[in-house]
Design a protein around this nucleic acid. Structure first.
Lengths: 190, 190
DNA sequence: GTCTATAGAAGGATAGAC
DNA sequence: GTCTATCCTTCTATAGAC
C-alpha cells in the first residue's frame, strides 16, 4: 500500500527533469530525493530510465494540459486567458528562481536526436497541447485551420520565451510574447 | 602551428552540443570526433569542460548572429528577410534529419539552473541577438522600443518552433511561425 | 606541447537477502 | 515487494612519459 512509492518517484522525477533535464538527472539522485530505495525504480520500471522517462513525459504532458484547460475555464474569454497563461508562467518562474518553466522542453531537446521512444513521447505531448488549444480557439469562433496555426504560434512563442527567460533570469520575454499573443488572438476573433 | 587543434575541437564541440546538449556530450566523444588526443582539451582549456563550453557558446553565438546579418543583407526588405530566416532554418533542419536547429538552445536550458558561468554566456548570446534584430527593425523605421519587443517575439517564436520541429520531425511550426512573424513585421512598418 | 595511462567519482543496471 | 550491496561502464580530471 503506502502513499505510493511509484507516484512519489514519478513526481520527483518530473520536477528534476524540468529543472536539470534527462541526462542531467541521475537515478540515484531521483531515489535520494524521493526517499525511496534504489531497487524501487527497477521494480516499478523494469525497463529502467527510459521507461521511467517515457511515463513521466506523458504524465507531465497531461498535467500541463490540465493547467491550460483550468486557466481557460477560469478566464472570461480567450484573449484574457491567453494573457493569463503567459503571466501565470512568468509568476511561476519568478517564484522558483527561474527553474520551473515547461515540464518537458529541456528533455525534448535532449532526446530529439538520441532516443526515439522518448522523442516520440515528447512529440505526442506537444500534439495533445496543440489539439487542446485548437479546440479552445475554434469554440471561440476561429476557423479550425486558422485556430491550429494560431495555437502553434502560441506554443512556439511560449516555449521560446521560456528559454530566453530561464537564460536571462528575467520575465521580459514571457510578458512581451504574452501581450503579443493576446493581441493576435483578439485580431483573429470574428 | 597546425591547422588548429583548438579550432577543430571547438568546431566539433559546437556541433555535438547543438545535437546532444552539454551533459549529453562527453569529452572523450569530442576528442574522438575531432581526431585530437585527450590531453589537448586540458592543454587548450585548462579549466576543463566549463571553459570549453563557455568559449563554444560565445563563438556559436557570434556565428549565428553573422548568419542572421547575412540573410538580412541578402534580402530586399525586413519582411522577406524574416520569412527567409525561418524558411532557411526549416531547410537546414530537414537536411540534417532534424538535428541542427539553434546552436545553443539545448545547452541554455540544461545549464540555466545548474551552471552560473554557462548560464551567463547563453544570456549574453541571446542579448546580442536581440540587439542585432532590434537594430535591423529600427533601421527599417520601427521605433526602437517596439523594434525590441518585436525582436523578442521573433526570437521566442523561432526558438519555440525549433523545439516543436525537432520533437515532431516536421517543419510545420517553423513555417507557421515564419509566416506569422513576417506578417507581424509588415504590420509594424511605418 | 603531444599524447597515454590512470585515478577517482558518478552513471545505469543487476543480484539476491530479507 | 522492500531494500542493500555490488558490477561494469562512462565521466571528468590529472600525472607524467616522450
Amino acid at each position: 500500500m503506502a502513499a505510493g512509492t511509484k507516484d512519489r518517484i514519478m513526481d520527483t522525477t518530473a520536477q528534476l527533469f524540468q529543472r536539470y533535464g534527462y541526462t542531467g538527472t541521475g537515478l540515484k539522485q531521483i531515489v535520494a530525493a524521493a526517499n525511496a530505495p534504489f531497487g524501487s525504480i527497477y521494480h516499478h520500471f523494469p525497463n529502467g530510465k527510459v521507461q521511467l522517462g517515457e511515463e513521466v513525459i506523458r504524465r507531465s504532458g497531461e498535467m500541463y494540459r490540465d493547467l491550460f484547460e483550468a486557466i481557460y475555464d477560469a478566464s472570461p474569454d480567450v484573449v484574457s486567458a491567453t494573457s493569463n497563461f503567459f503571466l501565470g508562467a512568468a509568476e511561476t518562474l519568478r517564484q522558483t528562481d527561474y527553474a520551473d518553466a515547461c515540464p518537458i522542453e529541456t528533455v525534448a531537446l535532449e532526446v530529439a536526436s538520441t532516443n526515439e521512444p522518448l522523442r516520440k513521447a515528447t512529440a505526442d505531448v506537444f500534439d495533445s497541447w496543440i489539439a487542446a488549444g485548437t479546440e479552445r480557439l475554434s469554440e471561440a469562433g476561429i476557423p479550425e485551420a486558422e485556430a491550429r496555426r494560431l495555437t502553434i504560434v502560441f506554443l512556439s512563442a511560449l516555449e521560446g520565451a521560456f528559454v530566453l527567460c530561464r537564460a536571462s533570469k528575467t520575465t521580459e520575454a514571457l510578458e512581451v510574447a504574452g501581450t503579443h499573443m493576446a493581441e493576435t488572438v483578439r485580431a483573429a476573433l470574428p
